[in-house]
Write a protein that binds this DNA or RNA. Sequence first.
DNA 1: TTAGCTTTTTGACTTAAGTCAAAGGGTTAG
DNA 2: CTAACCCTTTGACTTAAGTCAAAAAGCTAA
Lengths: 235, 235
Amino acid sequence: METSILKKVYIFSGLSEEELEDVQKITRTKTFNKGDIIFFDTEPYLGFYITVSGLVKIYKISKDGREHILHLINPYNTFAEVPLFENFGEIREDAFRYPANAMALEDQTKVVLIPARPFTELLAENSRISLKMLSGFAKRLRHLNRHIEEITLKDVTKRVANFVLSEYINKRKTKLDSTHSIRLNISKNDLASYLGTILETLSRTFKKLQEEGIILVEGRTILIKDFEKLKETAS
Amino acid sequence: METSILKKVYIFSGLSEEELEDVQKITRTKTFNKGDIIFFDTEPYLGFYITVSGLVKIYKISKDGREHILHLINPYNTFAEVPLFENFGEIREDAFRYPANAMALEDQTKVVLIPARPFTELLAENSRISLKMLSGFAKRLRHLNRHIEEITLKDVTKRVANFVLSEYINKRKTKLDSTHSIRLNISKNDLASYLGTILETLSRTFKKLQEEGIILVEGRTILIKDFEKLKETAS
DNA sequence: TTAGCTTTTTGACTTAAGTCAAAGGGTTAG
DNA sequence: CTAACCCTTTGACTTAAGTCAAAAAGCTAA
């Protein structure tokens, strides 16, 4: 693994070449195929990860097997940093375990492990990383806040509409592609689990939104036919 | 407001008397009565808060008026720190707004405002605060994770049972009180909103758990009659 | 003590979303 | 080319939890 990868990771983005090499030395790269488990929430904590390529889902499972996806981790984003900071204060039984499960969603999903111990030492020396990390945590807290708001205060139709809308707005910001459509990079089953519902209900909801002339679903491509109506449905 | 209060706040707990006085100088104390709004999620961000006495709820409201409580903030705990760290990177429209609403739940709820600008300067100088803050964020991320898990993967009965159980375990850890009971410091309406349900459903659930001989509810006191069965119901 | 609140309980009913089962499409590998 | 597989859709049915309305129980303050 090269330091050029680390540079693209937000928390490491301010480091010197030398510092990057220090980090690079302690990492371990692993490759997973679709459906492979990266870790379970029952495992002892080793360190946090960077997704380098592919896609990772962070999720919880209920006793009876239902699943809920908390985060989807795209390339150059990190996951499982929380336990790094839980050694302070009283020792909770769930400290030093991963907070959730992680699974690769695509073949050739490459992740980099940053082992906890050497990293925390680096952190103590380099306060710029702490600030970056705080910013990263803040973003994630916002995300979870919004997630809870969605799931507890909105029905499935609103959630689906809002998902399509957010993805579309996000795409417009980053990609130079002027089609009024989005492309899902996950299965509808996973999307349902991310939106706090099940495949069948998602399917019926897509159908309803189509019948109302708001969107058009073709496989993993969703065409937005009535942006205003979509916004209205989402809010 | 005295520095003795700040000392009891986790993120300030490692500071010298001198540093505490620096913080103390920039604070502003406010007192609220039950039902008073501390801030709305639509307001521009001023800074974060410490609850000094009383109780604060952090919550979201849907368009049609339904409410969901995200956090309950007890004395010496902080809230609304997230926007402090959102100035970095792209400016989101919701940056510099509060992430949720805050309301006092008791009369004479005293809160201390730490204005953002002077505090971030302090933060840049004092990296120990950053680490404490990271630890605080980590705890909150865990909490939200668990919260989402509860709401999406468990039914109301399990959630209620688990709430009683957690409160009880928590009480045993902190207070020297050997009764097998807990005392709610919030109304059942607020508890329902915290557990992602409504008052009527909570009431019926309590009734059911009583009929099963697991608990006994008397006003705001809940007596645990069958601990094992409670654990079983909660899991 | 009682009037006037707020909070909680209970009953009857509705409904959104989940479950179960079967069939349809699409993709891939031999 | 086709069998085997996975992913998705559709239909029929169930159910947990929400809504609405009214009564009951608790508090508080004059």
